[in-house]
Design a protein around this nucleic acid. Structure first.
Lengths: 213, 213
DNA sequence: CGGTCATGTGACTGGCTGGTCATATTGAAA
DNA sequence: TTTCAATATGACCAGCCAGTCACATGACCG
């Protein structure tokens, strides 16, 4: 946790620091991200940074927590229809994930790095990974309880598939359809028939393969 | 490319160096892998290393090439039935990939890191990534030409799905079924009904979702 | 004014990195 | 035995890094 000093900072300065830290950790992995660079960018002394945070990992976990909170809030502000079927829910979930990626690219990138691993404190990586795994596992079990996913499907395996596909799908679509990005309206990507077609096709494949119909 | 000096080395010494380098780059990503550590391990002088290789990247690309060659040879030595359908071929391909992972874990790990990205020279990453993408793309197009994959499926999207699933599936299975690993016979993983069941289920899902039947 | 407490500072430490280079060793040919 | 090119060496360099600490600044209070 950041120290009290950090939260005592004037709002503007604190936010500026957060923004610069987000930029640093979005552009670089944990090892490559540099506190020296960050403080130089921010125009504060190295010592001041260590008045705000215990150490590098402290800042990083704080940014991760910010990202998790922002994403939860983002998803909560566009809640899905509760009566939605499992596959429709998954479609909604990943569409919302891409919206979030467009709206908060830095936060997304940092979370992506955490889940996808690479150089970062082992404990954090494990936490992020298992968090995602558990979530998808529950999703699948719920889907089977509701009769949306065939009971003979191995729940853990299906969770793995959802996890890996939807972790990467956003990046794939954004990379494939770069022209659709950058319009002021974050929803633009899904107004194009092309994006919707690809999206639906993935869901259709999974539903045909795992569904009960 | 390594310098001539490297290839002039006595076979035993050269192989020993390669083995230690494989260990170093399998355990650490490109940035974290350390030439200083490597030469200390090998008991040679820092300067000697730079008589053998241009620099760190030179060694790394050499190891990657070794890995690619070893894998190609491995796959070539268990060739699939040429009359095999596309999905059976994909099943064979990923099973062989896991066998390779069991037989040459260090080479696999290095290749995995290259494809999956993280800290490494951008040019190499791009090369590894697009190499895999192109391969799967061709696979899908061939599958459509043979009538195994439905023509209305977006070929690039399907290639993406195969790519992402089979890049991660090996690690998932190895992680989920660790007891099956470690037996002297590399083929052991697939003699267990459990592994075969999971494997078949993935293929079944994909075939039901993308096939023509 | 003096005191006290939170905050700010940047030179500094110790440790690591990839890479260089003048020098030493080796081994074989002449 | 002399010579000469290939190879081996490790001290050294510049550049990073995370983290520390003795000290400076500033603000509020009596």
């Amino acid at each position: 946790m950041p120290k009290e000093t950090f939260f005592n900072l004037p709002e503007a300065k604190r936010q500026r620091l957060i923004d610069l830290a987000l930029a640093e950790f979005a552009e670089n992995d944990y090892d490559t991200a540099s506190i020296s660079r960050l403080v130089a960018q921010a125009g504060i002394a190295k010592g001041s940074f260590y008045q705000y945070f215990e150490n590098k990992e402290d800042l990083y976990t704080y940014l991760l927590a910010l990202g998790a909170e922002a994403k939860a809030q983002f998803l909560g502000s566009n809640p899905p229809d509760p009566a939605m079927g499992t596959f429709a829910y998954i479609r909604w979930l990943s569409a919302a994930g891409i919206q979030f990626e467009l709206a908060r690219p830095q936060l997304s990138q940092i979370g992506y790095r955490a889940v996808r691993g690479g150089a970062l404190p082992a404990a954090l990586q494990e936490q992020a990974r298992t968090g995602a795994a558990v979530f998808f596992r529950q999703l699948v079990e719920q889907g089977q309880a509701r009769g949306d996913i065939a009971p003979e499907i191995d729940a853990d395996l299906a969770a793995f598939l959802f996890n890996v596909i939807f972790t990467e799908l956003g990046g794939y679509l954004l990379n494939r359809l770069p022209d659709e990005v950058g319009k002021d309206d974050g929803r633009s990507l899904f107004e194009t028939p092309e994006a919707a077609r690809l999206f639906d096709q993935v869901l259709h494949i999974l539903e045909a393969g795992m569904g009960t119909t």
